[in-house]
């Protein structure tokens, strides 16, 4: 133990800076915990409006995660396994929303899919579908920012995998689709699980794109992050408790991922 620790010891200046960084991330949460009115927690969480927001958050984030899984895995496979011109441009396009301010994503969605948007006008005219300010818009906004997390996680795993396993499956009589389903996907399962959990956590915490594209309507589009922001104006204690709830969920996700799945992603393909 001590020998291993000794081998990895950092030089003092680097160690000092690292400790400052840890403090930088930890202190805000300590501040939050210190101010949290624990006694009110149950009262806040049992308010009908909060219950409603919670239910909406869970339902929308699960939908967003499901859609991310449905479209994200094939997209990851395309990016990892198919050589085509402009692949890096496509990858950048599909993961842009990870680094974009979510509000910008929401604005873009609004002008594309809004009632008078480039594509939204046809949705309205042909199908009578009006996305903005609906629960569906929340799902769209969440999917928009969450799917890249799944795509990048799965793409990385597929890239590391030994493609000769697909060859072996093909020589045994498997079509490309059967080989993908029975060989590639099971081997990538740890990465898919990690991607799903990351995407779900991101969807659950989505704020900027949601409020821009879906608005803030109780029962329809007001998710927990939106409620938190709103509560900050009227009752800071409520905001504290809701924040804490989101932090707890994210923290559990990250700790769980690190121990159980992120390790699996790094394991050599086929052995995992």
């Amino acid at each position: 133990m001590t020998r291993a620790a000794g081998r990895d010891r950092l030089p003092a200046p680097a160690l000092g800076l690292a400790v400052v960084a840890v403090a930088f991330f930890t202190l805000p949460f300590v501040g939050l915990l210190w101010r949290t009115p624990w006694g009110d927690a149950w009262g806040v969480l049992s308010q009908p409006a909060v219950r409603q927001a919670l239910r909406l958050s869970v339902v929308c984030s699960l939908w967003a995660t499901g859609l991310s899984l449905l479209f994200g895995v094939p997209l990851a496979w395309l990016l990892a396994r198919v050589d085509f011109r402009g692949r890096s441009v496509v990858r950048a396009m599909c993961t842009l929303s990870m680094v974009l301010p979510p509000v910008v994503g929401g604005v873009a969605l609004f002008f594309a899919l809004g009632r008078r948007g480039l594509f939204g006008q046809y949705l309205d005219r042909w199908f009578g579908v009006r996305l903005p300010f609906s629960t569906a818009a929340v799902v769209v906004a969440q999917t928009f920012v969450a799917m890249p997390f799944l795509v990048l996680t799965v793409e990385g795993a597929l890239r590391q995998m030994d493609r000769r396993y697909d060859d072996a499956a093909r020589t045994l009589g498997a079509s490309r689709w059967y080989a993908f389903r029975r060989v590639t996907l099971p081997a990538a399962r740890p990465a898919v699980i990690a991607g799903v959990v990351l995407a779900w956590a991101r969807a659950l915490g989505e704020f900027g794109a949601t409020i821009t594209f879906a608005g803030n309507f109780p029962g329809r589009t007001r998710t927990i992050p939106l409620s938190t922001y709103l509560a900050l104006q009227s009752s800071p204690d409520e905001a504290l408790i809701l924040s804490l709830l989101l932090i707890a969920v994210s923290f559990v996700v990250l700790v769980g991922l690190r121990d159980r799945w992120l390790g699996g992603i790094r394991a050599p393909a086929g052995a995992g």
């Binding site: 396993y165 060859d167 072996a168 020589t171 060989v183």
Partner: peptide, 14 residues
């Protein structure tokens, strides 16, 4: 054609 690959390439999940 049946193939026996160099490092056998057995599917680890099965």
């Amino acid at each position: 054609v049946g193939v026996v690959f160099q490092d056998h390439l057995l599917f680890a999940t099965m």
